[in-house]
Simulated assay, not measured.
Amino acid sequence: MRYMMMHKLNDSNPVHWTPTPEFIAKFAAYMDEVNKAGVLLAAEGLLPSSAGAATVTKKDGETTVVDGPFAEAKEVIGGFGIVQVRDQAEAVEWATRFADLFDYDIEIEVRRVSEYE
């Protein structure tokens, strides 16, 4: 089963977008571990909305595009990973290990990827 793990960051907090050397070292060790386990399919970090972003909304037949930065958005997706694991419990375990890397509050959403049989 494939699961996507998406972590949310405060878009207006510079601390969330400027990792320390200590965090980078912990992150590298985590990535080494998840790679050696053979479960990582993809992972990317995202830049804050001030670096270039847009939302596209379609409502009542009308499409609206709003360019970033998103001052009204407190949290945005800061990055994602896709893992291939046995079950949701294993995906949550990897997400929990990832959350442990951070020295501030973090939310990670774990969602199963749709797979048509």
Rank of each mutant, 00 (worst) to 15 (best):
D32F: 04
G45I: 00
E72R: 00
A43V: 09
K59N: 14
V39D: 04
A37R: 12
S49T: 15
D32W: 01
V34M: 06
L40Y: 02
E33N: 13
T55M: 03
L41S: 08
K74W: 01
T55F: 06
V39I: 15
K59H: 15
G52K: 13
D67R: 03
E44G: 12
D60H: 10
S49P: 00
T55H: 01
E62N: 12
V65L: 02
G61D: 10
G52L: 14
A73F: 02
E33T: 15
N35R: 11
A53E: 09
G52E: 14
V34L: 02
P69A: 07
M31P: 06
G52D: 14
P48C: 06
A37N: 13
A43I: 06
A53Y: 03
A42E: 10
G45M: 04
V39Q: 02
S50N: 06
P69L: 01
K74Y: 02
T57G: 01
V66A: 05
N35L: 11
T64F: 07
L40F: 02
T63Q: 08
A54D: 09
A43F: 02
K36D: 13
T63N: 05
M31V: 14
G61I: 09
A73G: 03
P48F: 01
V66W: 00
P69C: 03
T57P: 00
A54H: 08
V34D: 06
L47H: 14
A71F: 07
P48N: 06
G38V: 14
